[in-house]
Structure formats: structure tokens, C-alpha cells
């Protein structure tokens, strides 16, 4: 039948991003927070690719590629930090890691 309007892709991207934010704000385990971050990054990737299709330019793919690379690097370092936090504080609750305050 008809083709899929591009706005549906964008709305899907928005929904996934919102889900990622919800996970970041409402979950208490550090790992789950990281997973929500990855979800957010994926949603943004979808948005990039969708617009790249819209403009028939491949630059969007390049940006998406870079986002992926950075997400991978960030995941590696972030998980190493989580390991350190677990080693030092013995907890994985994000609310317990709040000593940088006034």
C-alpha cells in the first residue's frame, strides 16, 4: 500500500529516547542507568539515519557511525568506573554515590 511516512520513524525515535530518559531518571541501579544511556544513543542514531534518508545525503550515516564508536568507548570506560565504584563502596545504587555535594 502506501509507504511509511518518515515522521513515524522520528516519533519512534522520540519514544525510544523518552524511554531512555525515564530509565535514567527512575532506576536506581547503575548498570540499568547505563543501559538507558545506550538506549538513548540508539534512538538518536535512528533519528540521524532517518534524516539522512530524507536529504539523500550520507553525512547522517557518518555521524551515526561516530556516535556508535563513541558509545562503545564510553561503555568501556564507564563500566570500568562502575567496577571501581563497586570495589570502593560496595554498592551499585546510584543514590549512594552522592558525596560530591555542598
Amino acid at each position: 500500500m502506501g509507504h511509511v511516512p518518515l515522521s513515524w520513524y522520528l516519533i519512534l525515535s522520540v519514544i525510544l529516547f523518552a524511554l531512555g530518559v525515564a530509565g535514567f531518571v527512575y532506576r536506581k541501579s547503575v548498570i540499568t542507568v547505563f543501559l538507558s544511556i545506550e538506549l538513548m544513543l540508539n534512538a538518536v542514531n535512528l533519528s540521524f539515519v532517518a534524516f539522512s534518508y530524507q536529504m539523500h545525503r550520507i553525512d547522517g550515516h557518518i555521524y551515526s557511525f561516530f556516535v556508535m564508536v563513541v558509545a562503545a568507548a564510553e561503555a568501556a570506560v564507564g563500566l570500568a568506573i562502575i567496577l571501581t565504584i563497586f570495589k570502593n563502596r560496595g554498592t551499585l545504587q546510584i543514590d549512594e554515590v552522592d558525596s560530591m555535594k555542598l
Binding site: V25, V33, I94, V97, D98, K101, L102
Partner: peptide, 16 residues
């Protein structure tokens, strides 16, 4: 000063 609560979730909400 109240904004600097140390809680990452609060910070994220402010960013949002």
C-alpha cells in the same frame, strides 16, 4: 546550594 545535592538523578532531571 540545594541544587548541589550530589544525586545524579536530580542532575539528569534538571538537564531534561
Amino acid at each position: 546550594r540545594r541544587m548541589q545535592s550530589g544525586s545524579i538523578r536530580n542532575y539528569a532531571t534538571w538537564v531534561l
